[in-house]
């Protein structure tokens, strides 16, 4: 496929560099939610490696020309993972990292859930289940305009309990949207507990496949595996692709890992906060 926006600075990054960026982002996520005394660290930490890869090694985007019509688009459909998206956008140069500490505060554009007023954000999200449909619309517009951009939609595994997602899967398949990639952050945990208890989904890969999408599973915390998944997605030319990222909720902070209590709560006190940063930064 024709590259509309070669971005040499950020292509072909090695694994170590990507890991370093993800570590910085994890740190920022913890600082943001602790500064705000609220927010969603668990699902931000689970998706941050994938987001790092997307913004630093996959997507054609240019923070200095944010409205370029040929830019790739990312929709953070699981809008509560705003700390993940905001921190990556800051690290990628869309706005200064200092602004992250105003997250969720009265005079900040960094709304609790992903907000389009923030530089680099394509659409506001927060009510689950709507982002894939928006992605379908953007991908349709690209086809009408014969514009080569690609559309990436990040979904939560609790989120796919919403019917809107399955309606939009049908639509993506009907229109053969090969410029559309959905990424499922399969961390197995939602607000009230484990997804398998709240609403068992069975074999998601088979379900989505039966809706006419190309499906591939990968390890969402291994940059080599992440790379091969997105390379595979680019190789599919006749249908949309659904990538299932097997991830760990709260990845990188041991007491948050697989713990639904940290879906929507920050570190409880200074001790937890410092432990989190120490673990992430490996001090």
């Amino acid at each position: 496929m024709e590259k509309s926006m070669p971005d040499k600075d950020f292509k072909g990054m090695d694994r170590e560099t990507l890991e370093k960026i993800a570590k910085k982002a994890r740190s920022l996520i913890i600082k943001m939610v602790y500064s705000a005394k609220s927010g969603h660290p668990g699902g931000s930490l689970s998706i941050i490696d994938v987001l790092t890869y997307l913004y630093f090694n996959e997507m054609n985007v240019d923070p200095s020309d944010q409205n370029l019509s040929s830019r790739d688009r990312l929709i953070m459909s699981k809008g509560h993972a705003s700390p993940a998206l905001y921190s990556i956008l800051a690290l990628r140069g869309y706005f200064p990292s200092e602004l992250l500490m105003d997250f969720r505060k009265i005079n900040s554009k960094l709304e609790g859930h992903v907000h389009r007023g923030v530089p680099g954000v394509e659409t506001s999200t927060g009510s689950l289940g709507q982002g894939l449909g928006i992605g379908v619309g953007m991908a349709l517009a690209a086809k009408i305009d014969k514009n080569p951009y690609r559309v990436y939609v990040v979904l939560g595994d609790g989120e796919i309990e919403e019917g809107n997602v399955w309606e939009s899967l049908m639509a993506g398949s009907k229109y053969g949207l090969s410029n559309l990639v959905a990424i499922l952050d399969k961390n197995g945990v939602q607000l009230d507990g484990f997804t398998r208890d709240i609403m068992p989904m069975g074999n998601v890969a088979e379900k989505v496949k039966s809706f006419g999408w190309e499906v591939r599973e990968f390890n969402g915390h291994d940059f080599d595996d992440i790379k091969s998944a997105f390379d595979f997605a680019r190789s599919v030319t006749n249908r949309p692709v659904f990538l299932i990222a097997n991830t760990v909720k709260g990845k990188g902070v041991s007491y948050m890992e697989n713990n639904y209590k940290y879906h929507g709560s920050p570190p409880a006190n200074d001790e937890e906060y410092e432990n989190a940063l120490r673990e992430i930064e490996g001090i």
Binding site: T123, Q130, L132, I134, G137, M138, A139, A141, M170
Partner: peptide, 26 residues
């Protein structure tokens, strides 16, 4: 026909796709 989308009996899909189209300049 290239600018008309019959989304089936799926109103949520229709409205969110319309939002995506509008966000992309339509």
């Amino acid at each position: 026909p290239d600018r008309f989308f019959n989304m089936g009996i799926s109103e949520q899909s229709m409205v969110t796709a319309a939002a995506g189209l509008a966000l992309a300049g339509k």
